[in-house]
């Protein structure tokens, strides 16, 4: 009855089995290569830099002498810039998401705005640096300051927060809103009392993602004109500044072994900060989930 002869089937089956196993192995190998490279990267950094980290590394300004160089100015600069970027992006991002999801959902404006946001998310970060240079540094006259850097990175990470906040807002069940509207609440009362509290963990996850991204950005701040050698901490929002990634970049580009070790140490500090922020996001999310589900 069979349309395929037994011998053909058997012969092909042997090959299929063999290829199936080989392909499975190939897939596994790909994952292993990716994970292995990550492991090599982390181990290499630790080996290169961990002995260089001590209190004076964290509290010293950069120096011509690699063994005396530290990241005080870079850390403080990073914290200031990232806080400004976070506040700007949080405010604008949540407000935009609320407007696009709650006030103008399905309008033509919302559709265009969303396509625009998707494209902004794909604009190379260095282009944001040029935008910051022209708008904040030169046109608005803020100079190559902490404020200008914060605004630049704020715009850069804005799409991340808008997308995360929009998703969180969409996930709020319509029945909650309808219940509040039925009691005569105004739109803003519904948004403030129902939508924002429900969407809050999702929004905060987006904020932390965005702030992590801002924390690691180098290119836009260089294009904007941040300094690479800063032996002082910023005293006002209009002070000049550097950030940790730029400091790392600067040290990486130097031929001396001592500076390269300092770069590795700086990278470890940067990654630890990012790790804590992301752990914070995970804890935040699980706590909110427990609160509602438990």
């Amino acid at each position: 009855m069979a349309v395929i002869s037994r011998s053909d089937f058997e012969r092909v089956r042997g090959r299929r089995r063999w290829m199936g196993r080989a392909f499975h192995a190939l897939c596994l190998l790909s994952v292993a290569i990716a994970l292995g490279m990550l492991a090599v990267l982390l181990v290499y950094l630790l080996v290169q830099g961990v002995t260089r980290i001590d209190w004076s590394f964290l509290t010293s300004f950069p120096s011509r002498h690699p063994e005396q160089a530290g990241i005080k100015a870079a850390i403080v600069g990073s914290v200031y810039v990232v806080i400004i970027a976070g506040v700007v992006a949080f405010t604008l991002g949540v407000a935009s998401a609320l407007y696009l999801e709650e006030y103008a959902a399905r309008s033509k404006f919302a559709r265009i705005a969303k396509i625009n946001i998707a494209n902004l998310a794909g604009v190379p970060s260095i282009v944001y640096g040029i935008l910051g240079l022209e708008i904040f540094v030169r046109t608005m006259g803020l100079g190559k300051s902490v404020l200008a850097g914060g605004f630049t990175l704020g715009l850069l990470v804005l799409p991340i927060i808008i997308v995360a906040a929009s998703e969180a807002i969409r996930a709020v069940p319509p029945s909650l809103r309808e219940g509040a509207y039925a009691l005569g609440a105004t739109r803003w009362q519904v948004v403030w009392n129902m939508v924002i509290p429900q969407a809050f963990p999702g929004i905060m996850t987006g904020v932390i993602l965005a702030v992590s991204r801002a924390m690691g950005e180098t290119a836009p701040l260089i294009a904007m004109g941040a300094l690479t050698f800063v032996p002082f901490t910023p005293t006002s929002p209009l002070s000049r500044f550097t950030v940790l990634p730029i400091q790392i970049f600067n040290w990486t580009s130097r031929p001396q072994q001592g500076f390269q070790e300092a770069a590795a140490a700086g990278i470890i500090v940067l990654l630890v900060i990012l790790l804590f922020m992301n752990a914070g996001a995970v804890i935040l999310r699980s706590r909110f989930q427990n609160k509602w589900e438990g």
Binding site: T91, L92, A95, S96, A97, L98, Y99, L100, Y103, A104, I112, A113, N116, I117, N119, L120, V123, V127, Y128, L131, I135, L155, L158, P159, I162, R187, W188
Partner: peptide, 18 residues
């Protein structure tokens, strides 16, 4: 509502600015 609209308009303005 106007404030929220202006915020969401800013992302369009960013593209225009670039």
């Amino acid at each position: 509502a106007v404030f929220l609209f202006l915020c969401s308009f800013l992302s369009i303005l960013t593209t225009v600015g670039i």
